[in-house]
Design a protein around this nucleic acid. Structure first.
Lengths: 224, 224
DNA sequence: CATTGTGAACTTATTCACAGCC
DNA sequence: GGCTGTGAATAAGTTCACAATG
């Protein structure tokens, strides 16, 4: 059901700052909590307040993509959830593969949050012969040599890279060659990928360093 | 501004944008790779190029904290690594505790990257009686009821929250009450903590949503 | 002469404030 | 009355460009 109703306008995304997309994701999560609490509508100020933003910020962010609110009323939670999911592309299922079934990889295989937001882990890859052809959390683990074959057969669109830093670029290259559109990288290296492929990096030590900085400097630098 | 006479200037951090601290962390990682490759010095343009920033950006970021470069030469890698670690506070060990030894928690216990950057996991907490008093990855797991006691005894300064969303705020409150200075939260909720405590949130589904957005909109929105 | 550090110019992002609507 | 959406005002962040430097 791609939107055919022009009343909820699908607007030219033009060029949207990454920070806006990040906040969109936060709004979504917060709206889902509100819905779970049985709340039907919310306002830019409530939403902003819960996340530490101003009401104007919330409205401006949403205005990048269309008119989702109702003056005098606010936003209908379910409506806005739908709108944001459409914007983020998570109004459908995404087929995801994991490369690297180590410590972190196994945790990713079992992570409920992915499934909850519409991500489906359809394959995993590793080099360890003891693991190949076994299942973890219901996901079959393949020899990494079969990456191209399986990514194609399983129509994998996104890759999770959870291999050691030294292997990460090589794995990324293989994923790109196999045709994935985006990569979430957990290895502590900066990957180089073609501009046709999206990538986001998550480096856990780096995240902790953001915390130590604030603690060491005793000043508030909030984030999500 | 105020002049002390520091050879390695410790400058007033005043108010530093979170984005700068984030990049600092990236510079550090990149410098460590350069060092591992045997490179003695680098330049703002090399560093920037590897991360997708301009040279001016790199210099401005570092200028927030002091004068670390050598005109005509660039930056000595080891020197700059030391400076950035001092700024981030990771020039010493930090004692960290994990709460929630589920899927993700176990991965965090085994994550090498933490130790590599000077983080030491000294305790873990869970409610599962089968787990309590066992060790995982060399870390002893305590009953969560003993959180205050152990955090104090082990001088824990940072907490990792890897419990279900519904328990996260409660756990955060306990960590704060027990005296931790910062929290890295993996639960998909916005935690409320006193402004004397630092927090950073990592939501894996949200990170993947940043990827799907770019893929769905076929436009480059790079990040780390 | 390559490279830093930095004021000035520019660009981008946030907040204000208010018209229009429910 | 409460709330959105948005142009105008303000603030913040980035890049430019160049004097200073080993």
């Amino acid at each position: 059901m791609s939107s055919s109703k022009p009343s909820s306008s699908r607007q030219d995304p033009g060029s949207v700052p990454a920070a806006v997309v990040n906040r969109l994701s936060m709004y979504l999560r917060e709206l889902q909590h509100l819905l779970a609490d049985g709340q039907e509508t919310t306002s830019s100020s409530q939403l902003g307040h819960r996340l530490g933003f101003t009401d104007a910020q919330v409205r401006k962010d949403l205005a990048h993509f269309g008119h989702f609110g109702h003056p005098g009323i606010g936003y209908r939670c379910d409506e806005l959830v739908g709108a944001i999911r459409r914007i983020l592309g998570t109004d459908r299922e995404w087929r995801v593969a994991l490369v690297g079934v180590g410590n972190l990889g196994r945790a990713l295989l079992g992570y409920r949050g992915f499934h909850r937001q519409g991500f489906r882990l359809v394959a995993a890859f590793d080099t360890d012969p003891a693991m190949i052809d076994t299942k973890i959390e219901g996901v079959l683990i393949y020899d990494i040599l079969r990456l191209a074959e399986i990514v194609s057969a399983e129509q994998v669109e996104l890759g999770l890279v959870a291999v050691p830093a030294s292997d990460a670029q090589d794995v990324a290259n293989q994923l790109v060659a196999a045709g994935v559109g985006g990569i979430l990288n957990f290895a502590p290296v900066t990957l180089t990928v073609p501009s046709t492929v999206s990538k986001v990096g998550v480096d856990l030590a780096r995240e902790l360093e953001q915390v130590t900085f604030s603690v060491a400097n005793r000043l508030k630098v909030d984030e999500s």
